[in-house]
Each structure stands twice: as C-alpha cells, then as structure tokens.
C-alpha cells in the first residue's frame, strides 16, 4: 500500500513531458469523460488511460491501481443500479436505464481517477510544484503546501502501518474480518498519529524557512520546464480527446 504513492523514476516520453502538459492531459480526459454519455467512448477513454500507464513504463502499477479502483466501482455500481428507478424493469427493482447510468458513472470515475494516480507515479511532486509556479504563475506557498501534502501521504501510511504493527504485537486483532470493528480499533490510534503529523509539518515549514522559503520567487527554480515535441503531442491528443467526446457524445 505504501508504495502506491511512490514515484517510479524513468525516462519514458511521459517522464520527459512537462508536468503542466501532464496536468492538461489529465484534465482533458476528465472533461471528455463528462462530455459524453456514450459507453463506448468511456471504454475507449479507459483504454487510453491504461495506455498512459504503458507509455509511462508503469504498466504493472497502472493495473494494480485499476484493480484497486475496481473494488470501489463495484460497490458504487450496485448502489447506483438500485437507486435509479426510471426505464424498464429488468428484475427485482433494477431497470435497464439504471444499469446504463450506473455503468456510465462507474466508468467515469475510473477514467478520471486513473490518470491522476498515474501522473503522480511518473512525476516528482517538486516538479509539479515548480512547473506550476514557473509556467502557470501559481503562488509558491500553494505549490509548497501541495508538494508537502503529496510527500506526506506515504509517510503517513508508513506511520499508520507501524502503529498497527505495534498494536498487533500487543494482542490487538486487526486481522478481523469485521470492517466496523476494525475501524473502531483504528480510530483511537489516529489521535496520536494526527498530533505527530501536525508537529512534523510544522517542522518542515520551519526547515523550509531556514533555507530561504520567503525569498523564493517565480524565477528561483534552477530547472526550466520547457515544452518540446512530446508536449505538442500531449496537447494535440488532449484537444482530440475533448473534440472526439463532444462530437460522439
């Protein structure tokens, strides 16, 4: 679980792409997904997402994220299918329209979440922040908060698993199947975790200030985030996705 949020270094076209382009591409996929209700277009977009993983050289990770999202999707699908009452009844209270709407909702969720997670695995958080500051003129304080938050997730997970391990050693049975019971056991442990987390972020801010945080401007970044052929491709693909989805709907 911890390695889910860790960046996989590499030199694929996706790694070389300007982080801003990657964000544009992610947004384009999302916009396209919301423009269309056509299940085939959504399926195509899903395939495109997985392609991103292949191009980025993180195929295995793409599929493991996909699998993770699928679990949530099944739950959502059932919920949706039960709630929509329009259309012709197929069996019990489930209607044909209900099934179609549920499929669209779930596909959209997958299509939107997958590239976001994938981009995070091929881009260092600091590159995202620096490029947003340089190219899109995002104020640095926001960018810093963003990167700190992203970097924080794996640390948080590690701490959490450390705490669970320590509690397991004392005889607390986390391996229970009962989800509610497990949550009940975990909640009291979250308090010290939150306290230590807040203390940690405070220390990070202080450390940054001690290294000139307040002097940083848009021009400070040493690395330059230029746009190349890969980025042009990225923009063209983004435009094509949106146009395609809008036309086919």
């Amino acid at each position: 679980m911890t390695d889910l949020f860790q960046v996989v270094p590499g030199n694929s076209p996706l790694h070389r792409m300007n982080p801003v382009t990657k964000i544009v591409l992610t947004l384009a996929v999302s916009v396209a997904a919301f423009l269309t209700d056509n299940l085939f277009v959504l399926l195509f977009l899903l395939a495109f997402d997985l392609m991103i993983g292949v191009v980025g050289g993180v195929t295995r990770k793409a599929f493991s994220i996909f699998k993770g999202l699928l679990k949530v999707s099944v739950f959502l699908f059932i919920l949706q299918a039960l709630f929509v009452r329009r259309g012709n009844r197929l069996f019990w209270i489930v209607t044909d329209e209900g099934l179609l709407t549920a499929a669209a909702v779930v596909l959209r969720l997958l299509v939107v979440c997958l590239p976001l997670a994938l981009i995070m695995t091929v881009t260092q958080p600091s590159d995202i922040a620096n490029s947003l500051v340089q190219v899109l003129h995002l104020p640095y304080a926001y960018a810093f908060t963003l990167t700190t938050a992203i970097r924080f997730i794996p640390q948080f997970m590690e701490e959490m698993s450390g705490i669970m391990e320590a509690q397991t050693a004392r005889g607390v049975e986390f391996d229970t199947k009962n989800a509610a019971k497990k949550l009940g056991m975990l909640l009291p442990l979250c308090v010290p975790l939150l306290i230590s987390s807040v203390r940690r972020t405070g220390a990070t801010a202080t450390a940054a200030k001690a290294r000139g945080f307040e002097l940083r401007t848009r021009q400070s970044g040493y690395k330059r985030y230029g746009f190349g052929a890969v980025d042009l491709m990225g923009f063209l693909v983004s435009a094509a996705l949106i146009a395609g989805a809008a036309l086919i709907r």
Partner: peptide, 22 residues
C-alpha cells in the same frame, strides 16, 4: 498461531514508544 495467543507468549518493545501508547 493467532495474534492473541502469540501476544500471551511474546512481548515486543519497539524503538518508538509513541506507536505503542494509545
């Protein structure tokens, strides 16, 4: 062996007490 069974036999003191204290 089950967790609870094992915990009767084996005590574990970690490096960081804050992971244990709750």
């Amino acid at each position: 062996t089950r967790v609870s069974e094992r915990a009767k036999q084996v005590g574990f003191l970690f490096q960081n007490p804050d992971r244990q204290i709750c």
